[in-house]
Write a protein that binds this DNA or RNA. Structure first.
Length: 514
RNA sequence: GGCCUUGUAGUCAAGCGGCUAAGACGUCGCCCUCUCACGGCGAAGGCCCGGGUUCGAUUCCCGGCAAGGUCACCA
């Protein structure tokens, strides 16, 4: 190692913050923030914030072939909307930047070489790109398949592993293409610790000499992770359980470098069903999809938090938490080891709860665009409609279909006037509508209270239950069996003129009937 | 196939050697009620299987079984 290199490494070490919890969310820019990603980001954020630490954003873009246009924007937008504010990252800077891996290219190469010098990695000149593709099990037959598989995974020693180091170095420096591989011991076992899975031990001979530095000079995911996490002072590595299998190799890397091993926190996957993870491929919703489908950010976050984590102790039964509250109660011990199936029905429940707990003003605000999608007539008060809707809405997008009778009276069947529970039929309904029409025309003030008084008074006079009066009028005024809100509200919103017009139409329909 | 992990009702889940095995969603029933919804009350439904250890196992151990992950110059 040259003096210059020593100085470089020392400087890198000096930048590392110590003495505080630091976590990082490190997505690759594939342009899709699925629910599992969001949950990982949330937990990562919470672990840092619970401890008063730093939440760092790092972009893992070392795969030049998988860049997706606009992908990082989607991620930034999601994090921002959810309130998962990062303390350091490509956009806000920080003490251990750059925070984009392709901008750290030179760093990895230096560290990879350091590892070679330390004897934990080696240059490999094999041209294996083609043969080394992962074997496809699906093309193998049932019988011979097992043998093929066995052969495909058979472990052979890489000839370059035993090359003379000086010779290998000379070849590499002469410009011959190479990759750098990790030198895994053949003997023994490696144990690593995970905060939720505990200690996991694997035999070293089940580990392969993975590539650390690719032919193009960029690091592989696994290597970049270790180097960056160390150089950025990450104390808790939170990630999906699909990386569990590579954790032993990480430990060997940390040990090879002589670095302190961070706390691992692996999270089980969010599933679509018993055997499939949520995925873009299968059309499972991303955070944005859910938003567009009418779910509130707070509800999504709350639900997702509980998918794989649950509060313990006195708050074990509690299930409603704001982000703020989560940062106070979140603990790693509550993270579940088994996969959780995403249940849209339960999300719906959370969404409904959040909607009901909004102030009427706030709900009117978020509901207005959806209301106006269906109700163009400005004469119908969006606020009044919102008031009817708040207790009847689980998801925002279900609002417009409920309102389709406001602008125009739909076609409906005279059968609708017959309802057993309300004790109505065509005859009774016609009588009610005719009586009501006259009285409503004479009603001095057209408001909910007056309307209610008029109708209940009518029922009393006629010696029938309220429903007998209200059912027919509601049908006449809406043309629908099911409406959000009762007649009184509907008439109030529709206004005198329109309500009376519709009642007259109802009378006409029933008269034609008999 | 090797290695690793997981396994409490349809779903999310408490539980951490002794309980009638919490709670929530969903489902069903009843009440409230001008329809629907909200709200209230109630019901059905579970420890993957087989051995151990123990006075006693959902809980500890072993073995099955099932599911998932991983074995890329992708992340």
């Amino acid at each position: 190692m040259t003096e210059e290199e020593k100085k470089y490494f020392a400087e890198m070490e000096e930048r590392i913050p110590h003495g505080r919890v630091r976590t990082r969310f490190a997505p690759s820019p594939t342009g899709y923030m699925h629910v599992g990603n969001l949950r990982t980001a949330l937990y990562t954020y919470l672990i840092a914030k619970r401890a008063g630490g730093d939440f760092i954003f790092r972009l893992e873009d070392t795969d030049q072939s998988r860049q997706v246009e606009g992908a990082t924007e989607v991620i930034y937008k999601t994090l921002k909307e959810c309130g998962l504010k990062h303390d350091e990252g490509p956009d806000v800077g920080g003490p251990v930047g750059p925070y984009i891996q392709t901008e750290r290219r030179g760093i990895y190469k230096k560290y990879a070489k350091m590892l070679v010098e330390k004897g934990h990695a080696y240059y490999c000149f094999c041209n294996k790109t083609e043969e080394e593709k992962s074997p496809d099990a699906d093309e193998a037959g049932a019988e011979s398949g097992a043998d093929d598989l066995k052969a495909a995974f058979a472990k052979e020693d890489d000839p370059c592993r035993s090359l003379d180091p000086a010779e290998a170095l000379r070849r590499a420096e002469s410009g011959e293409p190479y990759v750098i591989r990790q030198k895994i011991p053949h003997e023994g076992t490696t144990t690593f610790h995970d905060a939720s899975y505990g200690d996991i031990t694997v035999p070293n001979d089940s580990l392969d000499d993975q590539v650390l530095l690719k032919r193009d000079g960029l690091p592989t995911y696994n290597f970049a992770n270790v180097v960056d996490d160390h150089l950025m002072g990450i104390t808790h590595v939170v990630r999906g359980s699909e990386y569990l299998a590579s954790a032993p190799k990480y430990n060997l890397l940390y040990e090879g470098f002589g670095w302190e091993i961070p706390e691992y926190v692996h999270c089980s996957p969010v599933m679509r069903d018993q055997q499939h993870k949520m995925s873009k491929r299968h059309g499972d919703p991303s955070y944005e999809d859910l938003r567009d489908a009418g779910y509130l950010t707070e509800a999504i976050l709350n639900y997702v938090a509980l998918l794989g984590w649950s509060p313990r102790g006195e708050i074990a039964e509690r299930e409603f938490f704001t982000l703020e509250e989560l940062t106070e109660v979140f603990d790693i011990a509550g993270i579940s080891k088994s996969p959780a199936i995403f249940d849209i029905e339960k999300l719906k429940y959370f969404n409904a709860q959040y909607i009901r707990n909004m102030t009427p003003e706030r709900f009117a605000e978020v509901a207005r665009p959806y209301i106006r999608q269906a109700v163009r007539n400005e004469g119908c008060s969006a606020d009044k409609i919102a008031a009817l809707l708040q207790q009847r809405t689980e998801v925002l997008t279900e609002i417009p279909p409920k309102l389709d009778f406001f602008d125009e009276l739909p076609e409906y069947d005279a059968e609708c006037y017959t309802n057993k529970k309300s004790k109505t039929n065509s005859e009774v309904s016609l009588n009610v509508l005719e009586t009501a029409l006259g009285r409503l025309e004479a009603l001095p003030s057209w408001d909910a209270d007056s309307l209610h008084g008029l109708m209940t008074g009518m029922a009393e006079e006629m010696g029938v239950k309220n429903a007998t009066v209200m059912w027919p009028i509601r049908i006449a005024v809406s043309g629908r069996l099911v409406t959000p809100g009762g007649v009184v509200e509907l008439c109030d919103i529709l206004g005198r003129e329109e309500s009376l017009r519709r009642i007259r139409a109802g009378i006409e329909k029933l008269s034609a009937e008999s």
